[in-house]
């Protein structure tokens, strides 16, 4: 039996180790945020949001096509993913007696963890090859593959937060189950469901890997989903590996915008699910 003194000393040592580990864990994010702000914030100007890229080596220009492309591609992806994800969330939360639910939950969670680059590869095989060219549409499909399991998961968990007795009250009125779900349960969980959609969108909007060989990138502004399209992460990547100082500066600015996007959505998510 160790002396009490020794046990306390050990307890304190462990605490120091634990705190050191925590600091180490928080360090990368702090550094990434800090460097992005220092290097990128000053480059966030009007041009960045309104101008297109300049030819290599020329100073100036901005990322307007990439910003528009990000909005179009993630927006389209969200439109595709939403019915599938919400349906899965409804099935998992509202039909607990369904025999297929454990399988669905397992595979949906698995899909959520699968590399995004593979989802892009699937979009490539299914859309790019069929269409014969890179396109914003194929990128949107890849985004949808990323979003679906996230939406399914968040929808399931927010639906489960709705008290069960609301459903019983509805059924006892002689309402059919589908009416209870659509008109009583979903509205009660609306804020949470929307947050889930938002988080899924933010997650997908930051992905570059699955877009390199689907949306491909495009330095010209386009609204046509059937043409190659640019997005912020794609442009960030292209500029980061370029040899031009001015492009590096703009890449950092893009990083600030992407970080701002995720900070904003996560704060919003906290706010919506506050008190839960």
């Amino acid at each position: 039996m160790r002396s009490l003194q020794a046990r306390y000393t050990r307890d304190r040592l462990i605490l120091i180790v634990v705190i050191a580990g925590t600091i180490l864990a928080a360090l990368p994010l702090t550094l990434v945020l800090g460097y992005a702000l220092v290097n990128g914030f000053s480059s966030l100007n009007w041009d960045f949001f309104t101008k297109g890229p300049k030819p290599p080596g020329e100073l100036g220009g901005g990322m307007a096509p990439a910003i528009v492309g990000t909005l179009i591609i993630t927006g389209t992806g969200l439109l595709i993913a939403t019915p599938f994800g919400i349906a899965a969330g409804i099935l998992l939360a509202e039909y607990p007696e369904n025999k297929l639910n454990p399988t669905l939950r397992l595979l949906s969670d698995t899909l959520n963890g699968m590399p995004a680059v593979l989802k892009g590869l699937l979009a490539y095989v299914l859309v790019v090859k069929a269409q014969g060219s890179f396109s914003g549409l194929s990128g949107a499909v890849a985004m949808a593959f990323i979003m679906v399991p996230i939406i399914a998961k968040t929808t399931e968990s927010v639906l489960k937060l709705v008290p069960w007795n609301i459903r019983e009250a509805g059924l006892a009125l002689g309402l059919p189950r589908w009416r209870v779900i659509l008109s009583l349960v979903l509205p009660a969980a609306r804020a949470g469901v929307v947050t889930g959609l938002l988080l899924a969108t933010a997650r997908a909007a930051g992905e570059a890997a699955p877009l390199i060989f689907t949306a491909f990138g495009n330095s010209l502004l386009t609204y046509n989903l059937l043409q190659p399209m640019d997005t912020l992460p794609l442009r960030l990547y292209a500029y980061a590996i370029s040899p031009y100082e001015d492009w590096h500066r703009q890449a950092w600015a893009a990083a600030v915008v992407l970080l701002g996007l995720i900070v904003l959505t996560s704060l919003l998510a906290r706010w919506v699910t506050r008190g839960r």
Partner: peptide
């Protein structure tokens, strides 16, 4: 949630 490319740069 931080995008991969941001870590990358």
């Amino acid at each position: 949630a931080v995008p991969s490319v941001v870590y990358g740069i």
